[in-house]
Design a binder for these strands. Sequence first.
RNA 1: GGGCCGUUAGCUCAGUCGGUAGAGCAUCUGACUUUUAAUCAGGUGGUCGUUGGUUCGAUUCCAACACGGCCCA
Length: 523
Amino acid sequence: MNGKAKPDMRARESSSPVPENEQVARRREKLAAHREAGAPYPNDFRPTASAARVRTECGGLDDDALGTRRYRIAGRLMTRRVMGKASFAHLQDGSGRLQLYVRRDDLPGGAYQAFRRWDIGDVVGVEGVAFRTRTGELSLRVDGLRLLAKSLRPLPEKFHGLTDREARYRRRYLDLVMNEETRETFRTRSRVVDFVRRFFAGRGFLEVETPMMQPLAGGAVARPFETWHHALDIPLFLRVAPELYLKRLVVGGFERVFEINRNFRNEGLSTRHNPEFTMLEFYQAYADYRELMDLTEELLRGLARAEAKRRAGDEGGGAPGADGPAAPAVAWQGHRIDFGPPFERLSVRDAVLRHAEGITPDDLDDPERIRRSARQRGIALDDGAGPGKTLVEIFEHEAEPRLIAPTFVTHYPIEVSPLSRRSDDDPSVADRFELFIGGREIANGFSELNDPDDQAERFRDQARQRSGGDDEAMVYDEDYVTALEYGMPPTAGEGIGIDRLVMLFTDAASIRDVILFPHLRPA
RNA sequence: GGGCCGUUAGCUCAGUCGGUAGAGCAUCUGACUUUUAAUCAGGUGGUCGUUGGUUCGAUUCCAACACGGCCCA
């Protein structure tokens, strides 16, 4: 190394998470030489095909037919095997990889020497004719090539790739370059969102966008992020849910609406919580929570079937059938989750009785005994927690992790359901359900409370809990009550956690694996 | 918040019962016109997470801290 490079490297170390090293210095020298030679970052190369398209078009062709297929493709150089005057390399683009065969004698003078100086990671454009190698791999015999963007930093190792979880989250671009599973996870995520969108659009739902910044953070029991609007000189809250705005739209006459967007909750980070997460919420007038359970089953079964079909197609096409590869089931963290059979429906109370060992119906009916049961199980209760909240705490502790197969849980206590319609049969419970899959809450839906006086009373009750120390309790939203006073049609609404749904379809154990840039503590 | 584990070369990982470190890939030099974790020969590359402590000497032992992982609340 020459004496000049060193201070230069040092100067960069302070501002970069990855220190520069000798390899970077060498690549910088190559870039400098490349700059001397002319435009180092050209933007006039236009591919005629992707790697996948070359594969599709040439898949069944014989050698003679392949010889008539000329392509320009562009991508990142991922491997290189130089054998004197000829080389093999793999180019990776957004669709996959294609092998290149580069011979000195097929190229204009000097081009092969230039190619030999390129590095793994460089973005290049090549042109050539398809052929099949001795071992049968479809490849491109290159007769023209250009460097489109120099890569100054060495990529992770070609065989093990990037495995360090922290590095994969913090520098997702490298994870994406190196790991096909990661690329596939986020393609799956896109397909899931696309399926959901078409599902609702196809049923007459209008897609809308409601405020992410709200003067009151309502619609869910959660701690909000707070920010400040300088011109108005008022605090604003990042929304914890779009619910109260979507229902205002139902008041306005949009009888079927949905929104897919981010919610923000100022709570801890974990394998199942990211401070910002994506939620689907939808509202349907003249429907009740039972009909939403049916709709939810239809949505998830359809999604599972579409994904299964796709997988079967990728594997060369298995015969679709109840138990064939296209069955609407997924493998998730060692479980087989089948969306085919009707989802089980049971009450919170029955779920607790089934899964919480040693709890009897008498325990649940007695306010003192239910609190004692919770304490015995190590559940910390707020002083103000009534029997309903306590029951739900026990449910979450004992039953929720065991609800692996899709299960609707119903009959939630009214005290934990401040926006839900009161049941006609039992005023202590709401016309509400939550859906659990893989031991996780996936959806929460209910017949909406459209009685403005009842809603006002529920808000007052929340306000009391708030002044009693529960800073997650809801705040009184006067304008929302006013909207209800104009009259909201009988309506049912639901929220589905998109990230958790995607986890099921990508066999992900952590929500960070399905969020491109998950929040981490700054390094 | 608690417990356990991890942090060593660009990446994946060994290792040092305390004497300033190794492998594979990558990189560099050379050979090689059908390879594919190419091969062969020879090199370069490290503030061993940070800060303190113990010690003649710490990457190694101890403590605190930082970041991450897993489990628990």
